[in-house]
Nucleic acid binder design. Structure first.
Length: 277
DNA sequence: AAGCGCCGCAACCGCCATCTG
DNA sequence: GCAGATGGCGGTTGCGGCGCT
């Protein structure tokens, strides 16, 4: 893959997990608990990177994991939460019991993105989201592989222009269609999942107090996404067309309207979102 | 039947926040 | 306060399966 490994992997196995490895990992974690991922492979007798063990456990071996058959309700929720949270898959997954961030991410990139694009509700249908459509990406990857590595790293658009690749004129890493994924954890410890946090009594039971002190939706949005929601204008102006307000704002309004169609749903999701902030 | 291309998904990667000494 | 270790996250890649020609 051309990248240097994050940790030493000499002699470590890679690729798909065997049933035997799964059993070893499951047995070890059930006996010793999660954590100490770097030390786990050695202790459990697995020739795997600790990260790989953690991923395998979190996404497939953990009790309660649901696989496949994402229901319509779950799909709707994913779409709505994505509208609110952007590509924060772990947070979205936290609202879908038994689902993992990886599964939701894959599902979004394969099924939902395509579906929404067909429905014309994506931020910019004629501009592929960075790295989000597998087919587009793969085609591009294949093209890129033909280029010398040095030119691949060319940061500006001149290189793309030289090669006549119009699609490369789009800044490759621009993530303007959603809030940049960022950690939201200053308020709670890393060891507490969003789920446990959200259900630990800080959520809706005392939500009234928080709601009373909570800023308005517009204020929050202007704080979180200042480029899209300049404070005080209600987000309807097209002044800051960082993406193309004509493309994103209707989408957001569409999604907000869809959510607003179920006020309780909106309140619940929004309340949780406020607390995340 | 064989070749080809696309698609879906499991797994890997680097980055970064947080923890720990 | 600092540096190294650790864990978690989102983005990306590669492979196998499937359908089409």
């Amino acid at each position: 893959m051309g990248r240097s490994p994050c940790c030493s992997k000499e002699g470590l196995k890679r690729g798909p997990w065997s049933a035997r490895e799964d059993a070893i990992l499951s047995d070890y974690i059930l006996q010793n608990g999660e954590g100490q991922w770097r030390a786990l492979p050695g202790k459990a007798g697995l020739l795997r990177c600790g990260k790989s063990c953690r991923l395998r456990w979190m996404n497939y071996l953990r009790p309660g994991i649901k696989r496949g058959n994402i229901s319509q309700d779950e799909e709707d929720l994913i779409v709505r939460l994505h509208g609110l949270l952007g590509n924060r898959w772990s947070l979205i997954a936290g609202r879908l019991p038994g689902r993992t961030d990886n599964e939701i991410k894959n599902y979004w990139n394969t099924h939902l993105h395509k579906k929404l694009a067909a429905a014309g509700v994506l931020p910019c249908p004629n501009r592929p989201l960075p790295g989000s459509i597998a087919s587009e990406k793969k085609k591009k990857t294949k093209e890129d592989k033909k280029l010398p590595a040095k030119e691949e790293e060319e940061p500006n658009n001149d290189a793309a222009t030289k090669h006549g690749r119009v699609d490369d004129l789009v800044p490759p890493k621009t993530k303007v269609y959603s809030p940049k994924p960022m950690r939201v954890s200053p308020g709670f410890s890393r060891s507490s999942s969003y789920d446990s946090w959200a259900t630990s009594g800080t959520s809706s039971s005392d939500g009234a107090d928080k709601a009373a002190a909570a800023p308005s939706t517009a204020e929050v949005l202007s704080y979180v996404w200042p480029a899209m929601f300049p404070a005080g204008d209600g987000g309807d102006e097209e002044g800051d067309d960082f993406l193309g307000a004509g493309t994103f704002l209707p989408l957001l309004h569409h999604q907000m309207d869809a959510i607003a169609g179920d006020d309780k749903m909106l309140d619940q999701v929004y309340d949780e979102y406020l607390q995340l902030l």
